[in-house]
């Protein structure tokens, strides 16, 4: 028996889109403060799995627990109501490949929006909180600009600040650097690394193998909707046991993450 329960527990998760089965019986846990990298070729189901964790994708079967909240899926379970979903998602932060900042608001308003309208914090309190998060990602001086004036890397750091302003239990990253120009990738990776150092529980879908090796404690390799291999990050990336993992990793350099 361990003394503490994992922060995220995914059990027997299944998902199909029409006749296409994307997730087949997925099981994995993330310890509190742990960082798990989901790796695998495109179409392997890793993004769908990540989106299932905050129920942007509603699974067909299995169960998901994050913190104290458990959702079970399948014919015998009713689909969660939108209010329950919203309350649950307010405890999980998500960062998207395409940033998805709100273009009709300033940077500060982007970060304040959910604290004001979801957590119902007083405006001045929400503003202090938002400024603190922008400070953390190094963009406090951009608070009054609109997102369109920022570089891709800055936009993604604002998106991270926006998610952090909800003070979530876990953070989910969906290919957060895939839409960025190469020279902008490292500023975002460093921000994520800082979060890991602060003890945030995170699940990261990424193609940055050196980054996963450095920052994640564990990696989960997926292919065709199943977990092929799972283990401690360094050991698994440096010495994978499964042929599928080995052939996937052979496409990447295994050097250290760029600084």
């Amino acid at each position: 028996m361990t003394t503490s329960r994992p922060m995220i527990e995914v059990k027997a998760l299944r998902k199909s889109f029409g006749t296409l089965t994307v997730l087949k019986d997925i099981n994995f846990n993330v310890e509190a403060g742990g960082v798990v990298a989901l790796l695998g070729p495109s179409g392997s189901g890793k993004s769908t799995l990540l989106r299932s964790i905050n129920l942007l994708v509603v699974p067909d079967g299995g169960s998901i627990r994050v913190g104290q909240t458990t959702f079970a899926f399948g014919p015998s379970h009713k689909t969660p109501r939108s209010r329950e979903l919203a309350a649950f998602r307010s405890r999980t932060g998500m960062v998207f490949q395409n940033f998805n900042l709100f273009p009709h608001m300033s940077v500060l308003q982007n970060v304040m929006e959910a604290p004001v309208y979801v957590r119902k914090l007083p405006r001045n309190e929400a503003q202090d909180l938002a400024m603190a998060q922008l400070e953390k990602v190094g963009l406090a001086d951009r608070a009054y600009q609109v997102p369109q004036t920022l570089s891709g890397g800055q936009k993604q750091r604002v998106a991270i600040a926006r998610a952090l302003a909800m003070e979530p239990d876990v953070m989910l990253f969906d290919e957060a650097t895939s839409a960025l120009d190469p020279e902008l990738v490292s500023e975002v990776l460093l921000t994520i690394q800082q979060l890991a150092a602060d003890g945030m529980t995170m699940v990261i879908v990424t193609h940055e193998i050196p980054f996963a090796r450095d920052v994640a404690d564990r990696v989960v390799f997926m292919r065709d909707g199943v977990v092929v291999e799972e283990g401690p990050a360094r050991q698994t990336i440096d010495d994978p046991h499964m042929e599928a993992t080995r052939s996937f990793l052979s496409h990447f350099h295994k050097g250290r993450m760029p600084r």
Partner: peptide, 30 residues
């Protein structure tokens, strides 16, 4: 309006009605 906007709002814990009022409609009306 880009579906990513709806997703971003939902991921922040906003209900569909709130996403519509605060995120989608202001952009759509403009």
């Amino acid at each position: 309006i880009d579906p990513g906007q709806q997703e971003a709002g939902a991921a922040l814990g906003m209900t569909p009605a709130l996403v519509m009022r605060r995120i989608i409609l202001p952009q759509a009306l403009r």
